[in-house]
Amino acid sequence: MTTNASYGKKLSAGTDFPVMNVTNLDDHTVELGKPRDGSDWQMIVVYRGKHCPICTKYLNNLESKRTTLLDMGVDLIAVSADSKEQLEEHIKDLDVKFSMGYGLSQDQLQQLGVYVSDPRSPEETDHPFAEPGLFVVNQEGKILAVDVANNPFCRPDIETLVNGLQFVKDPDNDYPIRGTHNS
């Protein structure tokens, strides 16, 4: 069945990030959009799930910038609609130290405004899953940066993303949230 309707309303830059909780591998509840451990910003990376080798590569590459992000005050969490068991299996292929959340509900995916796909077969996965999304939330809970894609190969380049965030976080640059003009 094919439809032309988007799944949810896309989140806009400059608006409040929705209040949303996920569970991480340590069975702790994490509130998305609320930076942790002394950070003042949070980067939320929504990925497709364990079935996606492109996601695995992206997350492993993101780990190489984890320390840089933390030094800048950017907390990092990756989340998916996978079950805890699927994440436990996936973590074997990941070499990451940042927080990983699981179990995003269909309602949460809709709130995030990410694209959602159905599995091509039961071997791929057993549930509708999110296509990639990336959100950077500032200390005021506002969405500073948003990137939502409908497939796994359209994501921000990690090096460019981190360099851009370094520029934006520098108070001397007085860089505003972009994309907020209402016509």
Rank of each mutant, 00 (worst) to 15 (best):
N4D: 11
A5F: 09
K10R: 12
K10L: 11
L11E: 09
S12R: 12
S12G: 11
A13V: 09
G14R: 06
D16Y: 03
F17D: 01
P18S: 09
M20C: 08
V22Y: 02
V22N: 04
T23W: 04
L25H: 05
E31L: 10
L32K: 06
L32S: 09
G33M: 02
G33N: 03
D37F: 10
G38A: 11
D40R: 10
W41R: 05
M43Y: 05
M43L: 15
I44H: 06
I44P: 02
V45F: 08
V46F: 06
G49F: 02
G49N: 01
K50Q: 12
K50N: 13
C52G: 09
I54F: 13
C55M: 04
K57H: 14
Y58W: 06
Y58A: 02
L59N: 01
N60A: 09
N60I: 07
N61R: 10
S64Q: 13
L69K: 03
L69R: 01
L69W: 03
L70P: 00
L70K: 02
L70F: 00
D75I: 06
I77G: 08
I77Y: 03
D82H: 06
S83F: 01
E85F: 00
Q86M: 10
E88I: 04
I91R: 15
L94R: 01
D95L: 08
K97W: 00
F98P: 10
S99P: 12
G101I: 02
Y102T: 00
L104Q: 01
S105I: 04
Q108H: 05
Q108V: 02
L109D: 01
Q110C: 12
L112N: 03
Y115C: 09
V116Q: 07
S117K: 13
P122A: 03
E123Q: 14
P128S: 08
E131P: 02
E131W: 05
N138F: 01
E140F: 14
E140Q: 14
G141F: 07
G141D: 04
K142T: 00
A145E: 05
V146L: 07
D147I: 05
R155N: 02
D157S: 12
E159T: 15
T160R: 15
L161N: 08
N163C: 04
F167K: 05
V168M: 11
V168G: 02
K169N: 12
P171E: 03
D172Y: 02
D172N: 12
Y175M: 15
P176N: 08
P176R: 06
I177T: 10
R178P: 06
G179D: 02
T180S: 11
T180H: 09
N182E: 14
